[in-house]
């Protein structure tokens, strides 16, 4: 059995009378890719924000590597060992920093590379790993496309050699061909670096491709969790079933049949 790395236990967050998430518990195990899926308003974002400390949950705890995330020392370690990739590559990079500064910042603040030259060398290697080149070091984010920006964000995240990567809808703002490139980069990096990845998404086709296990969120509660095979081949919760049944298939005959089935079951 793989060891538990990041655990959410009974997370609850309310905004006034609105309950964003209630009693959300799951575990990211070492070396696995865990998908957190649901529609808009399902509480995916709130869950992530609670996990990484951007929002304080009203109840529940987050544990990292067996220890509850409490106190400065625990958070300090977590901030280095868990990195994040955000959804919107146009908003998640500081427009006034160069690629070298953006990717090198973690190396600097965590004291991994103390000299500028050392950081530059490391950043060059990292850019190579995500499919960018050294010529991009001194350019600003605005001169990159969405897909390239997301590669920069991934390079920034893996720069500090994290154990956990939290990806909040990292490909949903990208075009299909670029999405496929970025998904491959994530998959390769995850394997090469032995990362544990929490992958938040609404696209069940992408999740199926990347994730070993899934947590399905419905209106702030967990509808179902299980392995990829369990969820896709034999979904238990009606919500999961309806989500799966709505995934469009790029094949006219299959799609017609799928939609016919949908209409029948709606009756």
């Amino acid at each position: 059995m793989r060891s538990d790395l990041l655990t959410a236990d009974g997370l609850t967050k309310r905004y006034g009378r609105f309950t964003a998430i209630e009693d959300v518990s799951f575990t990211l195990r070492a070396g696995e890719v865990l998908g957190l899926v649901g529609e808009s308003g399902s509480g995916k974002s709130t869950t992530v924000r609670c996990l990484v400390g951007l929002t304080k949950p009203d109840a529940g705890t987050v544990s990292y590597d067996g220890e509850p995330l409490q106190g400065r020392a625990a958070w300090h370690r977590f901030r280095r060992e868990a990195q994040m990739v955000f959804q919107d590559p146009y908003a998640s990079l500081n427009p006034r920093m160069t690629v070298a500064e953006i990717v090198g910042e973690g190396l600097r603040v965590h004291g991994i590379e103390r000299t500028a030259a050392g950081r530059r060398a490391r950043v060059t290697t990292l850019l190579g790993q995500v499919g960018l080149d050294a010529g991009d070091l001194d350019r600003y984010p605005r001169s990159f496309s969405g897909g390239q920006r997301q590669r920069i964000a991934i390079a920034r995240a893996i720069a500090v050699e994290p154990r956990v990567l939290i990806c909040d809808e990292p490909v949903s703002a990208l075009d299909v061909s670029v999405q496929a490139q970025v998904v491959n980069v994530l998959r390769d990096m995850g394997r090469e670096l032995g990362l544990s990845i929490l992958f938040i998404a609404h696209d069940l086709a992408v999740v199926r491709y990347l994730c070993d296990r899934l947590v399905v969120l419905d209106q702030g509660r967990i509808a179902e969790q299980g392995t990829r095979e369990q969820i896709y081949d034999n979904p238990q919760a009606p919500y999961t079933r309806s989500l799966l049944a709505a995934v469009p298939i790029p094949d006219p005959a299959a799609e017609r049949e799928r939609r016919h089935r949908q209409k029948e079951s709606a009756r």
Binding site: Q148, A180, V206, Y232, P250
Partner: peptide
């Protein structure tokens, strides 16, 4: 062809990698 092949699909067996179109638009 490249576009169609880069779509991840729930109706096909999983492949090792997604097909991509190299480069950017």
């Amino acid at each position: 062809r490249g576009l169609l092949n880069s779509v991840p699909r729930v109706d096909r067996a999983l492949t090792e990698r997604l097909d991509t179109i190299p480069g950017t638009a």
